[in-house]
């Protein structure tokens, strides 16, 4: 330890003097912590809502168009499928140009027949999907299907029918869905 002279000690005291910062020196800034809390909470709230938005999707459909020239690129001499799915309160009827499809979807049938009847009181959506998949196998270029329902059939059942005819395990079946409103 070096020996300091009185003069040096005074010099050291003068230059190492510690002064407590006054209140005007420490509290001169706006306290932003509460503001920061609000911002963090708002961000969390908005993040939660944004994730809720991601739960929504949309199902596209259109109305049938009536025109004399036909729709699409199909040559006029090729057979038209005109696939139609009708949801009733007892089951689902699938029709094409050849008539109503019988259960199993391999043949057509006449009369009051349900192509995919209800099973245990519930609609058999997988049965409908399997049926239209069979039809797709015979008409691979066809993409349109008309969906309609009985007056009292609920919207959820219509949406499920549209889901069943649109695709099967990522493979498109009949993605162009037309909603037939007021036509039976």
């Amino acid at each position: 330890m070096p020996q300091f002279s009185a003069q040096q000690r005074a010099f050291i005291r003068k230059h190492s003097k510690y002064e407590e910062p006054g209140p005007d020196e420490t509290d001169d800034e706006l306290n932003i912590i509460p503001f920061l809390d609000i911002v963090v909470n708002l961000i969390m709230f908005l993040l939660m809502i944004t994730s809720a938005i991601a739960f929504y999707s949309q199902l596209e459909a259109s109305l049938p168009t009536y025109s004399s020239g036909g729709v699409g690129r199909r040559a006029s001499d090729e057979p038209q499928l005109n696939l139609s799915v009708f949801v009733t309160q007892n089951g689902i009827t699938v029709t094409g140009s050849g008539g109503k499809l019988a259960p199993g979807c391999a043949t057509t049938s006449t009369g009051d027949v349900l192509t995919v009847p209800k099973r245990g009181g519930d609609y058999d959506w997988e049965g409908l999907r399997s049926c239209v998949s069979t039809v797709k196998g015979e008409f691979p270029d066809e993409t349109r299907v008309t969906v309609s329902a009985d007056n009292l059939v609920e919207f959820q059942d219509l949406v499920s029918a549209m889901d069943a005819v649109r695709e099967e395990e990522g493979q498109e079946l009949f993605p162009d869905v037309l909603i037939s409103a007021g036509v039976r």
Binding site: E60, S62, V87, S148, N151, L152, M162, A181, G182
Partner: peptide
């Protein structure tokens, strides 16, 4: 019920709104 839905869709068709997007979960 589909009856209400078809009435709405029919009315939309009459006002040239034919591109329907159903919002679903």
């Amino acid at each position: 019920p589909f009856r209400t839905l078809s009435e709405v869709i029919y009315t939309l068709g009459q006002t040239e709104f034919s591109n329907l997007q159903f919002v679903t979960n």
